[in-house]
Design a protein around this nucleic acid. Structure first.
Ligand SMILES: [Zn+2]
Ligand SMILES: [Zn+2]
Ligand SMILES: [Zn+2]
Ligand SMILES: [Zn+2]
Lengths: 143, 143
DNA sequence: ACCAGAGTTGAGACTAAGTCTCAATAGGAG
DNA sequence: CTCCTATTGAGACTTAGTCTCAACTCTGGT
């Protein structure tokens, strides 16, 4: 999965540098969503000597390329989720952070209707669903 | 409109203090979305002597009461929109910030389907639509 | 009208998120 | 291998948001 990120970056015409390879690997082994701070902590823990700015720069690059999506958690934090470049949405587990992808069947109809009623010309949308994943539901019910 | 905010706050059992009345009035006269910084700047410009913390505290209070909704702008900033307490979503003009409310007809079906497929128990969702309002479309096309 | 006490306030310290600058470094095309 | 440019890390800086605490002010009860 780190490979996919790197290939896509290569495709995008940027250099495949050491720090980028290392960060891609760190992102790949992450489960669910993570924040820039999480990634930075991962890097520091392994003494990779990667600077704060480099982390933010790579995340921005990946987000531009739709290799990673920025999610706004209900508590206001910004997190990232590695994902397919195609348009879709995320279901986020509020207790463990697990992610499930959702294709947006049906949402387009909603946006089209909203556009018709309001006269707005809709350019983009963001849909985020929050809840508890099957595993967390089980854990909870067994306690 | 400031009156409505204050009545709702009263209903919620919090004190109607001077700073809250003043901030409610400032919020009421705002068009479209605004950030905490905007509101703070409004207050400072009028030398109301309202502290930064008070602004954040009131916004949190209003958000808890669903009198204001927190919107995450595409550029990552957090903004607020005064709105009806009932569940709904916002259409945000990316060039002037104008807001249009959208009731979520159809979205519930999407979330139900996503829940069924993923096994998640969905607790909440957030939908934000971004585009250009009718006025901004006209301005653009006349230039 | 008065009072008491809990809720609220502003100042300012503090933390965390994110950006910017710049000299040094390292990809990678040729 | 060489050169040029993209990229890097350090650290200063800016901004968002939180926290603490002594001072203040609502408000309900008298
Ligand atoms: Zn979970
Ligand atoms: Zn969509
Ligand atoms: Zn507009
Ligand atoms: Zn909804």
């Amino acid at each position: 999965m780190a490979r996919e990120l790197l290939e896509a970056l290569d495709q995008a015409g940027v250099r495949l540098t050491g720090p980028r390879r290392e960060l891609a690997a760190l992102i790949a082994r992450r489960q669910g969503h993570f924040t820039a701070a999480d990634l930075l902590a991962d890097a520091e823990q392994r003494s990779l000597g990667i600077g704060r700015a480099t982390v933010f720069r790579l995340l921005e690059l990946l987000a531009d390329q739709n290799l990673v999506e920025r999610v706004d958690l209900p508590d206001g934090r910004h997190a990232y989720v590695p994902c397919e470049p195609s348009h879709h949405h995320h279901l986020v587990c509020v207790s463990c952070g697990a992610i499930s992808e959702v294709d947006d069947c049906g949402i387009d109809a909603v946006t089209a209707e909203a556009a018709r009623r309001s006269g707005f010309e809709i350019q983009s949308h963001r849909l985020e669903l929050f809840g508890r994943c099957p595993r967390c539901q089980n854990v909870e019910s067994r306690q």
